[in-house]
């Protein structure tokens, strides 16, 4: 296959099917957006591609040797744990180079002593900058202010330009329209 990821008539869920059949592809250097109302199965789709949720029918193909990274909406459980931002990045192999100044200055602080937005962006960065060919992002703009969203937008473009494929689930239509080269809207029974 030429792309990094392709799905054919894919139906996924946890205990029962939660999505309509979906054809999807992501190529290297491409940013694909996935939008739609709550409950349509966007996050479940990412979970299935990452091997967490169940595939009920259809299939998922990945280019052999593709390394995945997944950012979920779950906040890593760091409250009460003495783990600094720098240590977190070292764990995933993410480089701190390129972090915005409002975060780079707090790299040596404990994660549970950062603001919600700072912690979210740092845990997102640890995934985004980790070595991977295909990055799956679930609502990456949650908790981010305007500066955070602007920095993320620029960084996703840089990541794609460096050859990674990105599949982004988001409710933030302005963000999706700005950053994604292609958008797939899941609408319950229809996919447009």
């Amino acid at each position: 296959m030429s792309g990094l990821l392709r799905t054919e008539q894919l139906v996924v869920g946890w205990q029962q099917p939660a999505t309509q059949p979906l054809d999807l592809s992501v190529a290297a250097g491409e940013i694909v957006g996935l939008t739609g109302p709550n409950g349509v199965g966007k996050s479940t789709l990412l979970a299935a591609i990452a091997g967490r949720a169940r595939v009920f029918s259809g299939r998922i193909e990945q280019r052999p040797g593709t390394h995945l990274a997944l950012q979920t909406q779950d906040v890593p459980p760091v409250v009460g744990m003495p783990l600094s931002g720098r240590e977190l990045l070292a764990l995933t192999g993410a480089s701190p180079a390129g972090l915005p100044a409002w975060l780079a200055d707090h790299l040596d602080s404990r994660l549970d002593r950062l603001s919600g937005g700072q912690r979210h962006y740092l845990t997102l960065w640890a995934i985004l900058q980790a070595p991977a060919d295909l990055v799956l992002l679930d609502e990456p703009t949650n908790n981010l202010d305007v500066a955070g969203v602007a920095h993320l937008t620029e960084h996703l473009r840089d990541r794609a330009a460096a050859g990674a494929g990105l599949l982004v689930v988001s409710h933030d239509t302005a963000f999706v329209d700005t950053v994604c080269g292609r958008v797939i809207a899941l609408e319950g029974r229809h996919v447009s």
């Binding site: 091997g51 783990l83 995933t92």
Partner: peptide
């Protein structure tokens, strides 16, 4: 140690890698 810490903050990372 690194894997124990990773398993705590990003439990999916082992399967993904």
């Amino acid at each position: 140690s690194p894997n124990l810490l990773l398993a705590r903050v990003y439990p999916d990372i082992f399967r993904l890698r």
